[in-house]
């Protein structure tokens, strides 16, 4: 029950795009077509779901204060390496993405071609790093991190797919010249997060 409510909370209430405005660059840039958005959404689910648990392990077994106690060396046990969090997380994310790419290319070539450029692109997507940092800040346990990673990715996918469908619809609209393209998309993002505010405050 706890995990279900965490998942619902992450997808709708604390939606990583529409509540925290993370991952905006790819959210705005890759939402022109529904197919592209679906691909990117799937890639984000995949990568967030993998990197958050990996980073959890890195954080809890190497970097956290006292994390190295398992070595049995007292000098190491006192170390607090959490200042290395950021750089290690980025390294983990980048290498995970490379790994995922190779695995997909070898075993699921169809999925690999449909994700195309988005897989390497989301290495630098801030929602991925954001997911890992939230995991540290909220001190999630391992199963919680697993659920959190997948549902944060799902939240991103939901937001970007619905935005792309809306953008497909407004292709026929008479938008003022100055607002065409990104300007309108930003206004739409604002209106969408207003609609998502319906969930704000839900206490599960």
């Amino acid at each position: 029950m706890h995990y279900i409510s965490l998942a619902v909370e992450t997808i709708f209430i604390n939606n990583i795009v529409l509540a925290y405005f993370l991952g905006m660059c790819s959210f705005l840039a890759c939402s022109k077509k529904v197919e592209t958005a679906t691909g990117l959404g799937l890639a984000v689910i995949c990568v967030l779901g993998l990197t958050a648990p990996f980073n959890w392990a890195v954080h809890n077994f190497f970097l956290r204060e006292g994390a190295l106690a398992w070595t049995g060396v007292s000098a190491l046990a006192e170390l607090d390496l959490s200042f290395l969090n950021l750089i290690c997380f980025i390294a983990v994310i980048a290498s995970t993405v490379q790994l995922v790419e190779m695995i997909l290319d070898r075993f699921f070539p169809r999925l690999y071609t449909s994700l195309g450029i988005f897989l390497p692109l989301i290495t630098v997507n801030c929602s991925i790093l954001g997911g890992s940092l939230f995991m540290v800040e909220r001190t999630y346990t391992f199963p919680e991190t697993l659920v959190y990673g997948f549902s944060a990715g799902t939240g991103f996918a939901l937001a970007i797919i619905s935005l792309s469908a809306v953008r497909k619809k407004i292709r026929y609209s008479r938008i003022p010249a100055g607002l065409q393209g990104l300007g309108m998309t930003m206004i739409l993002t604002g209106l969408m997060s207003m609609a998502f505010m319906a969930f704000a405050g839900i206490d599960l």
């Binding site: 809306v166 619809k169 407004i170 026929y172 609209s173 008479r174 938008i175 003022p176 607002l179 309108m184 206004i187 739409l188 209106l191 609609a195």
Partner: peptide, 10 residues
Amino acid sequence: IFGGTGFNVL
């Protein structure tokens, strides 16, 4: 800003 009635989303 969407162009009037019929063009809006919300």
